[in-house]
Design a protein around this nucleic acid. Sequence first.
DNA 1: TCTATACCCGACCATTATACTCGGGATTAT
DNA 2: ATAATCCCGAGTATAATGGTCGGGTATAGA
Lengths: 155, 155
Amino acid sequence: MKLTARVEYGVRALCALALHSRSGPLSLREISRSEQISFQFLEQIFLDLRRRGLVGSVRGPRGGYYLLLQPEEVSVGDIVRALEGPIAPVDCLAGGREGEARCHRSEACRTRHVWEKLRDRINEVLDSVFLDELIGPKSDRPAEKAGSQQGGYSP
Amino acid sequence: MKLTARVEYGVRALCALALHSRSGPLSLREISRSEQISFQFLEQIFLDLRRRGLVGSVRGPRGGYYLLLQPEEVSVGDIVRALEGPIAPVDCLAGGREGEARCHRSEACRTRHVWEKLRDRINEVLDSVFLDELIGPKSDRPAEKAGSQQGGYSP
DNA sequence: TCTATACCCGACCATTATACTCGGGATTAT
DNA sequence: ATAATCCCGAGTATAATGGTCGGGTATAGA
């Protein structure tokens, strides 16, 4: 019952992006430094986030990533599913939609509805929190300043 | 966000125990066969279930395991926690109680309350389902019959 | 046009967790 | 005595995780 580091990093990184919204794209190098996340690992994570349509990218100097949606439109659930795939606490729940994919073992199906309920609650919780809540009210946020260059965190 | 096979097996095995309640202990050999779970893996699982006080054991021929509580007193959450330890979707939530164990990274704490909420909902769901619900109404249950001997499933 | 900065991406690697297996030992009904 | 059963530490094969590496390609600015 654990989330991966990918998800933790992804959420934190997208918070950074959300806080940076108005100042153009934010480079992975900067996120890596400010969030203390391995730069190369971050690259992997952002490839998925881009493929899943959560962020856009700009190449070249002064490039980086930016949110494709408003912070209040991106839920933690979106991030989790982008980085870990569909949430399914047990294997027999993964893949296929509700009706099909029934277990071959009738006994297992006794417990199936528990796992379905669990899956639904997990999705509900994760879908109820959005990036704008995570970064807090505007008054809370540090004034944006253009960060310094180079570096990149490596554990 | 996955439960382990240990938990799946544990829940199924305890259902078997619950269905067998009145007929004395049930041996792992029988559970292994009827639930198609590796016998030796089941042994490991039941060691934990016993240490955590969910089942009692009887050694020797005609021995086996039995529930220490009524089926309506054992929740799926009890089983999960017995077999996987306390539920904590991210590491910084594991160990230590509410107040202490705060993250060293202030940024991470922005997201902390999401994971706490998630953890609490997961526990709620798992604690709301009990063994008696899983095995269904009495009318549903197959009449108990003394199972045949020997065997033990191995994948 | 050159160069540095950034994203892009497949492949690799080390560590850990998982899902078992193995080889015994202790207990007890028959 | 025998055989069934639980008890238990240690080993093992596979997969997932959390990275790293070595190259691309695009592009802003000198």
